[in-house]
């Protein structure tokens, strides 16, 4: 399977004014590494406010001006420049946004799904295509004439998904597609991603919802304090979590209500308060001396990756 997306050591920081003319550089994403192949779903799992949406913004080249991004983002092996991103976005790489708020409230659904067209012919052609895809997603002709406020939660989700698929993309980035929906609609949304996978599309699912991630993703990247600390396979999230590698991932798994609801202390260090060494140092039960000052790299263990010195020798 060909790789569609490679994100290598991406870091994102923001220049902020603190007081007067004093500036500081606030690091929000420190080291994000992941890859997605055709027909694969990779979930990035992180708590809300941890900055994981910035990954999506970085891929589409829509970070704000005061952001500073390092590292490489590659599409099909080719590193993307800002111009490349602008060329590819909306065509090969598309976004399924979080909510219906991303639609224009004053524009009919069909018109905004089609987007800008130069000629009448082009418009007709796109309109046909749009109708066809909308029909696949169970959206009748009456939806074309509706405005966003008239859509129910489930319909809105189907509109966002089918609009994204209009350009026959190779990579779909979905930013928090499930919160605020009832179980049936969540299930329906997740089924859409499964269908994309079958069609050979690579899907990057950015979410805080571990249930959703486990339901559809082949691999799951765990995002902690600006780092990807582990990329685990879906099947590792089973039993006692004994196949999970990083202590945080294990704790996260065991904290789920059905896996024991186990309590551990501490909080995720926030942007700007992360110490020198391992970001998990304060909470770790199996830390070594070196973890305090030395920061582990993401170790590649074949299908899995983990950022922990404990697994260094296995690599």
């Amino acid at each position: 399977m060909e790789k569609v997306l490679d994100v290598e050591n991406v870091s994102i920081s923001f220049m902020q004014y603190t007081k007067g003319l004093n500036q500081r550089d606030l690091q929000v994403i420190s080291d994000l590494t992941l890859d997605i192949s055709e027909g694969e779903i990779l979930a990035v799992l992180g708590s809300s406010g941890s900055g994981k949406s910035l990954l999506a913004h970085a891929i589409f080249g829509i970070l704000p001006e005061n952001a500073n991004q390092m590292g490489k983002i590659k599409y099909k092996g080719k590193e993307l420049s800002q111009a490349d991103k602008e060329e590819l976005r909306g065509k090969d790489i598309v976004l399924v946004p979080q909510s219906v708020n991303f639609l224009d409230p004053l524009m009919k659904i069909s018109d905004q799904a089609i987007g800008h067209t130069e000629t009448d012919e082009e418009k007709k052609e796109k309109k046909l295509k749009q109708r066809e895809i909308f029909q696949q997603y169970n959206l009748g002709p009456e939806v074309d004439e509706m405005y966003p406020y008239q859509l129910s939660g489930g319909m809105a989700r189907r509109v966002l998904v089918s609009t994204a698929l209009l350009s026959e993309p190779k990579l779909v980035v979905a930013d928090e597609p499930t919160p605020g929906l009832d179980e049936k609609t969540v299930q329906e949304t997740l089924n859409h991603f499964k269908q994309m996978k079958k069609d050979g599309i690579g899907v990057l699912l950015i979410t805080h919802d571990i249930h959703a991630a486990l339901e559809v993703a082949d691999r799951i990247g765990i995002f902690y304090s600006g780092y990807v600390i582990e990329i685990a396979e879906n099947k590792d999230f089973s039993g006692d979590g004994e196949n999970l590698l990083h202590p945080y991932t294990k704790a996260l798994y065991k904290a789920l209500p059905k896996n024991g609801f186990e309590l551990i202390k501490g909080h995720q260090p926030l942007h700007g308060e992360i110490q020198q060494g391992c970001p998990y140092y304060d909470r770790c039960e199996m830390k070594f001396d070196r973890c305090k000052d030395e920061r582990p790299e993401l170790i590649d263990l074949g299908n899995k990756k983990v950022r922990c010195f404990k697994y260094e020798e296995e690599a």
């Binding site: 708590s47 805080h208 904290a255 309590l263």
Partner: peptide, 14 residues
Amino acid sequence: TTMLDAITQVQILD
């Protein structure tokens, strides 16, 4: 606790 990760959920509810 719907928007929170599982660990924070346990901590707050506890």
